[in-house]
Write a protein that binds this DNA or RNA. Structure first.
Lengths: 252, 252
DNA sequence: AGGCGCAGTTGATCCAGGTCAGGAACCGAC
DNA sequence: GTCGGTTCCTGACCTGGATCAACTGCGCCT
């Protein structure tokens, strides 16, 4: 709905998840495990590097792809933050997910062959673009890569099922914060001090709550001493406490 | 929670989606497209047949796999109906999906490497069991099969996102019925006269509603002349009308 | 400085759907 | 047949979270 006005890149933001080198590639990239773990040689790694296209910077509010665009590629986030948003015929938006550095956007477009959502950057962001026909052809020659793609899809499926569960507002918010922290930690960032680069409205929409509810729950969690929150800067003070609240959303 | 007592197979139920022949294979199987569409020869088809294992019958209430079982295989439904159910630590159940003949169960286990849910038959059912290591090895040699697996995963992802959307109870029920009809039609069954083999409680749980709400909405839809419903036998009287109610859930 | 606009918070009210409580219909068991 | 169990439906009430309405604080413009 909103047409976010461009805003200039913020030098403080956006730690870059790789060293920028073409050869060493993103060390935390979603696909790195496919090669490294399986012990692939330089030649295979080079295949991956040839088909990847480094794109960016995108400034906050720019679109990577839009609903109904034909599906051509998947995008690994190199730096920055992206949300995917589906819009129904009445114009209601639904945030489907937030994607951190090292994560992959666009997998839900494989089946419909068109992107079923918009992908919008929330901060200045850089991507690796993988042509899907090319990467799936390569996957046929690299079992580790095929396996990795299966795993990414299956993981995304698990995330969607969590979101689909019916959980109380507080559980949802606690799970959201815990999950963000863990995903950041998995990418080598701090898992306890983090910046919520998305607006409260986006968070609320993603959690299928009203923005007011999210706001109230944040203050409640703060009053309980579980988190410290100032604007968009969040610190998780009591990870186990928060995890306990989120327990039903996350464990099964 | 409930331990459903076994019940004897009902000869009326469970139209079988294939001719039972080992060689001709399930004509409506989720994987048939992978071979036929891509023009594969008999040799490749035979590879698929060798790795598949026909299992069943399972009677209503039996488990195909359970939460935490190590992930070994995916299962294509040959006949009958299955639900998948996740249980959280407090014992709350969440139905994740219903699977009709021709559809595939177990894809959400790839990433965690353990099944994240139980799969329970709701009527007498037969399956094709595909060892996952074997089918993904074959997929590396059969791009059409690899593509098909990607598509299945991506499709399932889309379904989960629909379920995760926040929609009014009536929209959810209308979408559920419409979707069931379309999926049955896709498998060659009637898309307008169908049997809800799952209980109202299961439907409600799947839609994240109370059973009472589902019941009330069914009667409302009947009063509006959109459906005819007697027990578990449903007829969709006004498909476009129902689709209109479901519009926001399904279109994007 | 002042003023505008947007993001976020807080309080007051409302309502969709959940919960609770009966009751009817339909089994299968004996 | 009757009994007990189960599923489904319906009515009466309750509540979590949505909605509506201020209000605050901040960044940006002129």
């Amino acid at each position: 709905m909103q047409t976010p006005r461009p805003q200039r890149p913020d030098p403080r933001a956006n730690p870059i998840a790789d060293d920028g080198s073409e050869v060493r590639f993103c060390s935390t990239c979603a696909f790195s495990g496919a090669c490294v773990a399986a012990g692939y040689d330089k030649a295979h790694l080079r295949d991956l590097h040839v088909l990847v296209e480094h794109i960016g910077p995108f400034r906050a509010g720019e679109h990577i792809f839009r609903t109904h665009d034909p599906f051509r590629a998947i995008y690994a986030v190199r730096a920055g933050l992206v949300k995917t948003v589906a819009v129904d015929p009445e114009g209601n938006e639904q945030v489907l997910g937030f994607y951190l550095p090292g994560e992959v956007v666009g997998l839900n477009a494989i089946y419909p062959e068109h992107y079923p959502c918009d992908a919008v950057t929330l901060e200045t962001a850089y991507f690796c673009r993988f042509s899907f026909p090319a990467i799936s052809a390569l996957a046929a020659r690299m079992p580790g890569l095929q396996q990795q793609l299966f795993r990414l899809l299956s993981k995304e499926l698990g995330m969607a099922s969590l979101l689909a569960g019916d959980h109380a507002a507080e559980e949802r918010v606690a799970a959201f914060v815990t999950d963000l922290g863990e995903r950041l930690a998995a990418q080598g960032f701090s898992g306890t001090r983090l910046r919520l680069s998305m607006s409260r409205v986006d968070i609320a929409n993603y959690l299928r709550l009203a923005a007011e509810t999210v706001s109230r729950i944040f203050t409640r969690l703060r009053d309980q001493g579980l988190i410290a929150l100032e604007g968009r800067d969040l610190e998780i003070l009591d990870p186990p406490g928060l995890r306990a609240l989120a327990r039903n959303v996350r464990e099964r």
